[in-house]
């Protein structure tokens, strides 16, 4: 069991290390992730949402729907824990 775990983990490790070969270097300002979508967030966030904190702007506005999903996840987990642990009471 442990041997198999080690083998599979190493395999995935090799895969991961192989994958990182083509990744843009750490802190590279030319990285595509920095120059496509993020560009607009940085330049327009203040105009679009009147928020200085870009993370907040994205979290609550551009991708606010993700945050709704995030809240749903917490809600789900809450009801799930309720379902699992609670005995008695009204719910």
């Amino acid at each position: 069991m442990k041997i198999w775990a080690l083998v599979s983990v190493l395999l995935i490790g090799v895969l991961l290390l192989w994958a990182e070969g083509d990744i843009p270097a750490f802190g590279d300002p030319m990285a595509p992730s920095y120059n496509y979508v993020a560009d607009r967030y940085i330049s327009d966030a203040h105009n679009d949402t009147a928020t200085k904190n870009m993370v907040t702007a994205i979290l609550a506005d551009y991708r606010g729907y993700d945050t709704l999903g995030e809240l749903t996840v917490i809600f789900t987990a809450g009801v799930a824990v309720l379902l699992l642990l609670r005995r008695g009471g009204r719910l």
Binding site: G69, V73, T76, A77, V79, A80, L83, L84
Partner: peptide, 21 residues
């Protein structure tokens, strides 16, 4: 894609809870 991940987790968490019933 990321939205897909979030919803995937919602459905998975709900499924775990339901299986445990």
């Amino acid at each position: 894609l990321f939205n897909l991940y979030v919803f995937l987790e919602i459905s998975s968490l709900a499924a775990y809870a339901l299986v445990a019933l």
